[in-house]
């Protein structure tokens, strides 16, 4: 019961990030909103694992966090525009 309420609150947070992603005037705005929604989704996956009682969701969220961290840094390097 409490877990479902938590999931709804986190889902609202993801929706706010998506709204910013649609509105964001510049490309860095959208990228920042994506990065934040990734962090929120990591916590969301762990909570889903708790509610469904499956430990595999923890591994999924760890791999998700690792891969999207590399993706975020790559996007940031691209936006920076330098080849140092």
């Amino acid at each position: 019961m409490i877990g479902t309420i938590y999931l709804i609150i986190i889902g609202l947070g993801v929706v706010l990030c998506l709204l910013r992603m649609m509105k964001g005037p510049t490309a860095p705005d959208r990228a920042v909103a994506l990065d934040t929604s990734v962090t929120v989704t990591t916590a969301l996956l762990v909570l889903i694992g708790l509610i469904l009682k499956r430990k595999i969701y923890l591994d999924v969220s760890l791999v998700y966090a690792v891969l999207t961290f590399i993706g975020s840094v790559a996007i940031a390097r691209y936006l920076e525009g330098g080849i140092e």
Binding site: I10, L12, G13, C17, A33
Partner: peptide, 8 residues
């Protein structure tokens, strides 16, 4: 987490 998204 919700407040962070609201700040975004």
């Amino acid at each position: 987490l919700f407040l962070g998204s609201l700040g975004i």
